[in-house]
Each structure stands twice: as C-alpha cells, then as structure tokens.
Computed example of a mutant assay.
Amino acid sequence: MGNALRFLYGQCCKPSTAHDSETLGPHGVSAATVGVSALAQDLLQFDITSQVPEGLSQHVVSSKKAQANWYTKLLAAWKEAKPPPKTPEEAARLVILTLKRHHKADVEGLLAFYGLPPPHTLVQPHAVGVAPQWPEGVKFELQTLPVDVKAVADGDTITVYVNTEDPRESSSVPRDVQVAATQRSKARAVKNYTKADELQKKIVDAGYRVLNGPNNEDILARKYRIRLRGIDAPESKMPFGKEAKEELVKLVQGKCLVIHAYEEDRYGRCVGDVYCNGVFVQESMLKKGLAWHYAAYDKRPELESWEKGARAARVGLWASSNPEKPWEWRKDRREGR
C-alpha cells in the first residue's frame, strides 16, 4: 500500500513551475492531478502519523476526531481497491461510496478540498474496478449503505439497505412511510420512545427502516434481500456452511456495496452480482472453495473456471472428495430423506 501510494505521489506530485502557478490546487500541484495524487499523499501520511491534513477543517463541518475516522475508512478502501483510483472521477467515487453515510456537506467539502468532482457531476457512479457500462441483462443498480454483520444470512444471501435519497429510490417512497419517518423523529426528540418504536415497526413492515447515521442523523432506507447470482453456498447445517457465511461476512461487513440486479426470484430476493471496493464477491467465494458454481442457472464460463481452480487446489469444501451439493441437500430435506 505504502509503495503504491509513494509511486503515485512521485508520478503526479512533482514540483510545479511558475508557468503552472495559476492552476495550483490546495496541495500545490496542478488542477489536473491534485485530486488523486494529493489524496494518495495524505493517506500515506495518515497511515504513518494518524494525522489528518492541515486546512481540511476549513472545508468541512465535523471535528478532527470525525475526520480521522474518515481517513481510516478511506485508507482501508484504498487498500482494497483493485486497481486503486487513477483518475479524479475514480477517486471521487471511492470517497463518495466509502463515506456515503456521512454528512453530505462533509463529503462535498472533502471532495472540494482535493479538487475532486462533486457528486452531481459524476455520471453513473460505480465502485472502483467495476465496468462503467452495465453488463447485458442488468435491470438496475443498487448502491448500498454499509452492511451490518447480522444482515448476512448464509454464504449466498444478504440483506442490504439503500438510502432513499438515492435518485432511484427518492421518487418511489410511499407517502405514509415518509410521514411515519418524520413523526418518528419528532417522537424521539421528545423522548416518546414507545411511539417512536410503533412508527419504526410501521416503516419496517413497509420494507423500509430508519437507520442511525454517523452524525446521529436519521437515514430512511429501503430494504433489499440479495441472492448472489451464479453461486450456491453450503447451507448453514452443511459442512462448510459456517465457513461460507463467515467469509461473506468478512467480505461485506461494514462496507458499501454495488449490486447489479438481474431479476427477482420466487422468494422475492433480487438476484445480482455483488461488488465491494472493486472485488467481485462471487469470484472470491468460488476461488476460496466456499461455494458451488450454480451452473443450472448461470452459464458464465469464468464462474466455472474459478470453481475448477478451487477443486484442483482442494481448498474449502473441495478438501472432501465428494462434497454434497446444496441443491441436492435441500431436495432431500423437502422430500423427508
């Protein structure tokens, strides 16, 4: 991580000449490179010193302690991004996705500090490493709030929440849900928690939830149950069922996801491809031998290849010579065998 940041800084943050002086950004480099290179430099410094850059407080409203929390998250996201951001647009998207639950003014202030594009100028924002165009068959894209550990049901199913301020969601929130969310905030303000809990139940029953934001603000979010497309992980009571769930938790816990939704299954779940900071989650599960390629429903050759690689390496469930297929295990249970 440190070497990668140093290389990027060395390539982009070269001393400016007098000819460049009119285009200098707040870090003393050209406007064309200030976003990525300066952020890389500051993340490197934060990794070493745990200190946020001087002058940032002039652009944001939160405390130094909150700022340090941002840089901790950004540092982790940068380490996981494959490849790391190389353009101002990619860097801006990483910041926006990583700090999505934080105060809008803080996110915009941080972007402005680095001369990065503001959110409204980015077209179809995606996680770093995700193709800018949707693959064929994608019906819509979800950009989630950070995933809670309790939201992972097993190795191939998760529950996610999407902020209703998202343009796709904002126009479809039922009026009664909006009213209930407003009334809940008022009830909590006067410490009428019984009333607030009643309203929260009404909101939850409608498929939404009010979550607590990083600055103690209320976030009205829509609930989605996601079935990871193209894989079938061992059920919880099967061998490696526990390990599959734990690996999925490790991949997504506390992180914002980008989900390409293809269809809805018979259980009302969105069947989709899940990306986390540029990592394709299904690929990771297959390569670690913690899921089968669900070939009956997904013919993608790359999924087949990843499963074959895990089989050959005898990792995960493939340590067994003849592991039971989860779809056959479920069928046997339905038929009482």
Rank of each mutant, 00 (worst) to 15 (best):
Y297D: 07
P83R: 06
L97M: 12
K245P: 06
V138M: 04
G213P: 06
K237Q: 12
V177A: 02
G241Y: 04
D156L: 05
W78V: 02
S321M: 07
V128G: 03
I259P: 00
G129D: 04
A92S: 14
S62M: 09
G278Y: 01
K250Q: 10
A206Q: 01
A180M: 05
E247C: 09
V252T: 01
K288Q: 13
H103L: 09
Q178Y: 08
R337E: 08
L220W: 01
L257Y: 00
L8N: 08
P174G: 04
W327A: 07
F240S: 03
R101E: 13
R175Y: 10
G35W: 00
S284M: 12
N163D: 15
H260R: 13
V60N: 01
D106M: 00
K100P: 04
V258D: 15
R229V: 09
L116A: 01
A319L: 12
S284N: 14
I259R: 01
D166A: 15
H19C: 10
K223Q: 15
V160P: 00
V173T: 07
K64M: 08
K64G: 08
T98A: 07
E324W: 06
N322V: 08
R337Y: 10
P53L: 05
Q58T: 06
R175E: 11
K331L: 10
L116S: 00
S57N: 07
V123E: 09
D197G: 05
W78K: 02
V281W: 02
L257I: 03
R6K: 13
S37N: 12
P15R: 07
W78S: 03
S50D: 11
A31P: 05
E80C: 05
C12W: 09
Y9W: 11
F113S: 00
E80R: 11
K82S: 13
L74I: 02
R227S: 05
H293G: 06
P26W: 08
S21Y: 13
R266F: 06
R314I: 06
K223I: 07
A92Q: 04
A261G: 03
S21D: 11
K191L: 12
V190K: 15
S172W: 10
G55S: 04
G129A: 07
N277T: 10
Y275H: 15
V152I: 14
